[in-house]
Design a protein around this nucleic acid. Structure first.
Lengths: 338, 338
DNA sequence: CTGAAAGCGCTTACAG
DNA sequence: CTGAAAGCGCTTACAG
């Protein structure tokens, strides 16, 4: 049987299609009695408006884009989960697109997607949230954008993030309180907004505690397990290695852990290792990682709330918004007294 | 500026909208010269057909649904990556939906989604690919379905999978060849098609080699790290523990690894541990896991190819299809001689 | 508060 | 091989 349309409902309810439309969109100016009656018929017939017809006539869209570069990280999965749940709540759906910054046709493909789907909004995750060619394209088309895990405003996008700086200070203070003074730091990709803040938080905490930072103990990294292992190798290869390592994310911390295991350095007895993110893998390590919980699903929910807000969708009057979400320190067994 | 429409192209090319439509859809019966000319105008104006209008008039859809239960696993991410890439190739887009089998309104929400979006097809991943209420709903609506990592046909869905049985036999033979005879097995959720096959492959390999299987060494598990750790604890708590453990996936193998570390059992010296899937985490362990590479991105690509095939979309004549994709044995350092 | 008309941007079915 | 007409299922803009 063909799907139920607005006409079927109108006929069955004895009103015009326009009235049904008004009820479905919760518009004002419908007598309560009529409203209730229509709603009853809708339920009876199990009527669901066709999203394509709706979008075509209103040039609104019920699709929100979630763009990311690396879907393989637990990060992307967590963001997706939060976004999906909230989309359902607002009656939207999530379209995922992989954006490969190095792909020669990526921008062209995005542009194709935008015109074909006329997305109601787009969520951008790191690192592509800082790719200006992309944000310019989105801006140019007037598409509402929310950037996750970046506090860099600019353009008309809203930003949602935790206080990476303070969280990194907290984590460093945790180590200092445990008696550590020889602390190494493994950086993320420094061009990411969050990575820079985490480094700054570490440095400032050390400075405030009057502890010097050894150059060789600030190691480069790119947020990958492999780079964490390399950093661990560099840091732990000498006899006077530090008593603690703070990696800018959990994957790298895991790499440091493996590097330590390789050298038979006991964690946390001879070395404390801490991470950042509370990724699922942080609990699959041994010992489990002390880390900072970054509630990515919550960040994503907030992003959807913003994008689904009709008033935000009006082009033009999009005030710069910056939302900060609380983080949590998670003490586990990978860190101990110096 | 408002988007370019088919009328704009028609006017600029001096043909009717219908001809432009024919060109865009690569239909026959257009003179090559006209075709080329239209194509040139399309490129010039950067015209992209509006997907909503297209779908509304043709009641075809350019959206494919990817349904899963647990997006947090690396598995979902890998599937997504393969699906996204292939969707782009075919001009489709991926809509992700989380399906919580235990949610009271899940089926209702799916039904709502189906009517609103009229998906061109749906990819089902384990475990929901075996949820008959869901597959019935999809069947009832005549929506093409492809199930991943399941070889259970039934209904009209296509299935795509590796040879889990043979892969598990191969892995078991690997251990046997290394000299192991005391081998434990950690099961996945037995109701999953693949989990059953892996167990069967293990048992048959042991039987063929004339090796007995001790009951206490077949441990239950649910594919989670936690369950792997519990199984490891059960298996390794006695002094005469096995010399090798084969876990039905990598996450559980990691749990066994941690359980062994806990007891100071050296891997692979005193214990070989092998997994299945070649999940990203299998390389983040120490030692790295010997495993079976299951090319999930490839399975997903194949699924998209099937769903994007116009002939497959015609309701009715959907022949049962079962595609088997090759797997790869990955020898790493977590397994060694008995 | 309610409805009739027109239109969103395509494709289908039909002519020629 | 090409096109004019009608229609997909909604919403917009306008009346009343």
């Amino acid at each position: 049987m063909p799907p139920v349309t607005i006409k079927d409902v109108a006929r069955a309810a004895g009103v015009s299609p326009k009235t049904v439309s008004r009820v479905m969109n919760a518009e004002a100016h419908v007598r309560p009695a009529v409203r209730d009656h229509v709603l009853r018929v809708v339920a009876e017939l199990d009527y669901r408006p066709n999203a394509y017809a709706r979008s075509l006539s209103s040039s609104r869209s019920y699709l929100i884009g979630l763009f990311f570069d690396d879907p393989a990280s637990g990060y992307a999965a967590e963001v997706q989960l939060g976004a999906m749940a909230r989309c359902r709540h607002h009656g939207y759906h999530l379209v995922v697109e992989r954006i490969d910054r190095d792909g020669p046709e990526t921008l062209d493909e995005v542009s194709r997607t935008l015109q074909a789907l006329q997305l109601a909004g787009v969520i951008l995750t790191p690192p592509i949230c800082d790719w200006s060619d992309l944000t310019d394209l989105l801006d140019h088309r007037g598409i509402p954008v929310v950037k996750l895990n970046s506090s860099r405003t600019g353009s008309s996008a809203a930003v949602i993030h935790i206080d990476d700086y303070q969280a990194a200070r907290d984590m460093t203070d945790h180590l200092i309180t445990l008696g550590h003074r020889d602390i190494a730091f493994v950086q993320g990709i420094v061009s990411h907004d969050a990575a820079g803040k985490r480094l700054a938080g570490f440095c400032d905490a050390m400075r405030c505690a009057g502890i010097g930072i050894r150059d060789a103990w600030i190691q480069a990294g790119d947020f990958s397990f492999r780079s964490g292992m390399a950093a661990g190798d560099a840091i732990l290869s000498t006899n006077d290695h530090p008593s603690a390592v703070f990696a800018a994310n959990d994957e790298m911390a895991l790499g440091v852990l493996v590097s330590a295991a390789h050298r038979n350095i006991a964690v946390p007895k001879a070395l404390s290792v801490v991470g950042f993110d509370d990724a699922p893998i942080s609990r699959m390590a041994w010992p489990q990682l002390t880390t900072i919980r970054q509630p990515n699903a919550v960040l994503a929910s907030v992003a959807i709330d913003i994008l689904a807000d009709p008033s935000y969708q009006q082009a033009g009057d999009r005030p710069a918004r910056s939302v900060q979400v609380p983080y949590t320190f998670i003490g586990r067994s990978s860190s101990g007294p110096a």
